[in-house]
Amino acid sequence: MELFTIVMGNSAESSVNELYQALDNKLAHVHKDPIGFELSIQQGSDYSLIQGTGSEGARAAFPMEVIGDTIADYILKHLEPDVLHDLITRKYKLHKEDDIRSVEGYCRQFLNGTQDASPLSTLIERRHNLISIRVSGYLQEHSLIVLEGFVRFRLQEYLEELREVVEYAVDESLMDRQYQEFISLLQYFVYMQEAKMPTAHLIHKGGHDFLIFNDQLEPVDLDEYDATFKVEVLEKDVNFEDMIVSTLITVSPAKIYIHTREPELPIVNTIMQIFEGRATVCPYCRMCHAYLGDLAKKDQLYP
């Protein structure tokens, strides 16, 4: 008696064999049950079949949830990347390999938890459980399942989540590209501009509180450079990162020392990119001590 038949495309023969082996391992205990269970695989040029058969009446007692769990693993690993690629290239008409790779990279981050507050295991488990329940429920009533068609027509909730992820990833990729183009423009501007002071010290006291000193350790008088800058009184709708970068470009120092206890901040990374070899993050010095206080004892490695 046919218990189930799984039909799948042969886009990757190794993945078909992987699903067969996974089913064979997870259903090993069923072979020992008195239902005469057998698992077989037939591979054609375009499609492959994985079929489970058993004695009459075995279907009612067969553990379809095991099939659901195993197929869910297969879909997440082997079919999900193809679905994402199809959404990216067809809906958003992206055809340049660099653009596609960028969006796919963001999709992996969002789906695997690195861009979400939820732990990695929770995000994957949620999608896995959704697919597994749908597959096992379907196999309770039908013996034949065509995987690619099942994903396309029976997993609409899952597909909608992927569509939302792709949409968000496309937006993020576009913003990242625009940001990189803007950084490149500023890098060129800085490269072409002559230095107006030998050294500038940028002191990050925390939050949006920054100070800028010249090589004489005096506050920079921006009136001399036809610019205004007062981070302490920033309003909420002002982008303080843009103001800091603009100010540094205006005073055009030959060397920038960034004194901060948070070197991983985006603004620090932005300055390091724009000014390239001119900018250095200071780990600890007298100025750091004066404005930022002592380092934790375990970090006091500097004079």
Rank of each mutant, 00 (worst) to 15 (best):
K236Q: 11
L248T: 05
I6M: 00
S121F: 15
G149H: 11
A296R: 13
K93L: 00
L39K: 02
K91W: 12
G57F: 08
P219F: 04
V233M: 13
T260S: 09
Q187K: 15
E264N: 12
I6D: 05
K26H: 10
Y188M: 13
I274M: 00
N10M: 11
Y302N: 00
L120S: 15
E2R: 13
D171W: 11
I50L: 04
K77F: 08
Q42P: 01
L185E: 13
S184M: 09
K236T: 07
L159R: 15
Y302A: 00
L111P: 03
V220E: 05
L265D: 08
E97Y: 07
Y20M: 07
Y74V: 06
Q178T: 13
A254I: 06
K93C: 06
I100F: 05
K297L: 08
T89Y: 03
I256T: 00
S132N: 02
N269Q: 14
E38M: 12
L301G: 00
L84I: 15
T260E: 02
Q180K: 13
T199S: 10
S118V: 09
M64G: 01
K230E: 14
V83K: 00
T70H: 04
D299N: 13
E218M: 11
G137D: 03
M8C: 08
S40V: 11
G207H: 13
I100N: 00
F150D: 01
Q180C: 07
H78S: 06
F150H: 10
V103S: 02
E65F: 05
P303K: 11
Q109I: 06
E218K: 12
Y284S: 11
I244E: 03
D69N: 10
A12G: 14
L185Y: 15
D299H: 12
G277K: 06
D221T: 04
